[in-house]
């Protein structure tokens, strides 16, 4: 029988759209301290923005896009992990699942890999956006709680954006709802890597010790969410695009992208919209041919794709290359 301690440890990182999963991945990579960490980045949309934002060597970051690792991309994930374990075994594997994935489904796949002696499930981290929590409506809030239950460590992230009173109420809800799960407040996922690598040592690595949940009869999330992606090789008009994003904030759960503006075509900007909160930053120089990419995810009953297409087209700068 395979000694589990010799198998590649897997850390899964879950969390709703925009909670801070990619930030956490980069935190882990920045503190890798010589460990070779392979990162699987899953994006529900057809363009994997997060992949571009992961600060790892290309060979050690694997993009799984246009679907979800818990369902439609599950086979791809498993075969890819098996290949790594057989041919080029890393010290640790990190899976950043899509913002809509069901962590229990992902657990089942990893337990199957564990049964086959390839990996061991090491730590399941759930990143929860403290500012967003409570503003998503009943159903989405319940999904967040249900998913937090299926983790070993919950990071109550963006804790700097909410009042102490709200934080305490949130933690009380988690404490009452999640049983044994550890809860930790963070800002920009500023968690020490030691707490990630060591927090779960007391939990059995065997799937024997974990109650496998029956998984919902869901084949994909396509029926519930829309994902709209766009790649354009023309710069965007800054003001029109900002207006487009303001309109999006009312209807999209999440939008993110890397953009070239016509008033500064040699720099690439990244934007990140979560609920009503948006951040912009310049991430580096770019060539004039650099494409702009964006992904918008929203519930299918509130997001009109034709409307999005029409409004985005208005953002394109005229007569530029």
């Amino acid at each position: 029988m395979t000694d589990l301690l010799n198998c590649v440890p897997i850390i899964t990182i879950g969390g709703f759209l925009g909670a801070g999963k990619t930030t956490l991945v980069n935190r882990i990579l920045a503190q890798a301290d010589g460990r070779r960490i392979v990162v699987f980045v899953n994006d529900f949309g057809s363009i994997n923005i997060d992949y571009d934002l992961i600060e790892a060597a290309d060979t050690d970051r694997i993009s799984l896009k246009n679907g979800c690792v818990c369902c439609t991309l599950n086979d791809d994930l498993i075969s890819s992990i098996v290949t790594f374990c057989r041919e080029d075994q890393p010290d640790t594997i990190v899976i950043e699942s899509s913002g809509v994935s069901n962590p229990r489904s992902l657990d089942q796949s990893i337990f199957a890999l564990q049964s086959a002696g390839h990996v061991r499930l090491y730590n399941r981290i759930y990143v929860l956006d403290a500012d967003q929590f409570g503003s998503l409506g009943y159903e989405n809030t319940e999904i967040l709680i249900d998913h937090a239950v299926a983790s070993d460590l919950v990071l109550v992230n963006k804790s700097d954006l909410v009042s102490d009173k709200k934080l305490r109420a949130l933690e009380a809800t988690l404490d009452r709802s999640t049983g044994d799960t550890a809860v930790c407040r963070t800002t920009h996922c500023d968690v020490a890597i030691d707490s990630i690598f060591e927090s779960n040592e007391s939990v059995s690595f065997s799937c024997d010790g974990v109650v496998l949940a029956d998984v919902e009869p869901v084949q994909s999330h396509r029926g519930r969410y829309h994902s709209w992606s766009k790649t354009v090789e023309r710069p965007l008009r800054r003001e029109t695009f900002q207006e487009f994003l303001r309109e999006l904030s009312g209807i999209a759960l999440r939008a993110k992208g890397t953009i070239v503006f016509d008033d500064d075509p040699t720099h690439l900007s990244a934007f990140d919209l979560v609920g009503n909160r948006m951040t912009n930053r310049t991430i580096g120089n770019c060539s004039p041919q650099q494409a702009s990419k964006l992904v918008v995810i929203g519930k299918n009953d509130s997001m009109n794709l034709e409307e999005l297409e029409y409004r985005f087209a208005a953002c394109l700068a005229e007569g530029t290359v």
Binding site: T178, G179, D214
Partner: peptide, 22 residues
């Protein structure tokens, strides 16, 4: 509210209370 989803009795009560609230 099966135990695979909601792990403790108190968590069940909490889930019921949240549903009733809306």
């Amino acid at each position: 509210v099966r135990p695979e989803i909601v792990p403790t009795f108190d968590a069940v009560l909490a889930k019921i209370e949240r549903r009733v609230a809306v």
